[in-house]
Amino acid sequence: MDWGCFVIEFLQVIIYGIVLGCIISLGAIGVSLIFGILRFAHFAHGDMMSLGAYFGLVGVVSLQLPMYAVFPLAMGATALVAAALDRSIYRWLRSSTPIIMLISSVGAALMLRSAIQVVWGPDNKIYEAGIKLPYIFYGLRIKPDQLNIIFGTAVLVVLLHLFLHKTRMGKAMRALSDNMDLAQVTGINTERVIFWTWMIAAAMAAAGGIFLGIDTRLNPIMGWRILLPVFAAAIAGGIGNLYGAVLGGLLIGIVQELSTMVISPAYKPAVAFAIMVLMLVFRPTGILGGKE
């Protein structure tokens, strides 16, 4: 292979990595937010992404809505499910240890996934049939969908940034993440802030799920399969750190795709795992630093 071809292929793989990284980031943001405030690893987060993707399917196929309308709808619906999950399950376990919360989130993951299977069936589904021609720049191919994923993620991250820094509730979320006890002493209604945290985390997850569905296909296990890279991204970025989660997502996405140039693509998830373990062993606070 000559050098020109290699560089083109390399850049092409990077593009795929960025697309995958965007999807992972949207999941990792939620995992990071929830960990920052409630101090437990939320194992049902991948399945929340699946749920968002399937709510998107309802919008696209059943309601025949355009994509830009599908997003707020699916994100809102997923947020409501997350809020309901918190009210019905997690809230009752708040005073127990993070480990018990973690196990209960594994149970919640099972429930979400099987509910998806009951409602939509176990088969693969797609939003739209047909192949869209990619744009080609200097030999690099990029599909319109992929551009939308990158652009859409950027918009959502900017919106989230504004929410966290410009609104009262957003600032309170950061305050809780810093110090829950102090927030309580200050008189902040922590339960309400936690409620909002779930809604935001789930909405981000839903968007990530729809993007994942656009990029690949929908099936009930899609979210569980991406959970490992999502956790890896949140850890790599420094758990509790929003921008770290985005960077971590991009890192995991790009390295996963690059690894396919060297090893069998079947082992992509192993790469996420390897990065995660390396980070945990050598730099547990993540790239940008996070919480213990």
Partner: peptide
């Protein structure tokens, strides 16, 4: 807090990642 008593703990009594201004805003939450 609503009745008019406020408390300043000995340690960990600010939100470190919030700005000074935001800390004060949280006081008025």
């Amino acid at each position: 807090v609503h009745l008019g008593i406020c408390y300043v703990p000995q340690e960990f009594n600010v939100f470190p990642s919030l700005t000074v201004h935001e800390n004060l805003e949280m006081g008025a939450f």
